[in-house]
Amino acid sequence: MSDFDTVLGLGDDVLIAAQRLAEWTSRAHDLEEDIALSNIALDLLGQARALLTHAGHLEGAGRDEDALAFLRDDRQFRNVLLVELPRGDFATTIVRLLFLSARLWERYTRLSQGEDATLAAIAAKAVKETAYHLDHAAQWTIRLGDGTEESHARAQRAVDEQWPYTFELTGESGRQAWLDRVVPVLDKATLTRPDPDPAFRPGGGRDGLHSEHLGYLLAEMQHLHRSHPGATW
């Protein structure tokens, strides 16, 4: 993969994750968590803006962050499938945030020491935000998993349903570091770790092969920009 593909994939991961997370704004179960999820979505959006801007520079074709975010169709997005799945219930969102943040933390840490100075600067900034998100998701996962019968059941279902998608998220090489970060949280949350070697491992996002959910997400995200080109606030 070229540097452009790598940065674009990462930028798309956090952009789509931000858009999904923002769906909770004004809908969470209490004000504090509503603000928390919105804050995290905003952090991810900020990372996406920096990454997509940098991807545009690497590509050298004159595309800026807006062109990349708003003027591509689903087949041109390179995010992993996990981030585009419907947001589900609160447990689904929290477990997904745990899975994603654990992976992002590893990637940003490595990129912050890389040769691309611009990317290293973005990553060094983002890793601090990601550490906070990871901590938040871990605390909630423990509270839900080790909570009531209902919250435990929902958290376990959230883990079981999304686990297959984490293989695309981590890849082979990033698997162990990710497990080292996620499994202790699941253990503390009294949640059962699913089959470590399942046959069902959906993927293809990095090649632009997405689920139908992404199209609906993009329709909402891109509608304004495409209907009113050049619109400003």
């Binding site: 952090d43 991810l44 959006l45 990372q47 920096a50 935000e129």
Partner: peptide
């Protein structure tokens, strides 16, 4: 420099 990447 921004405090947070997305600081509005």
């Amino acid at each position: 420099t921004p405090t947070y990447t997305a600081c509005p």
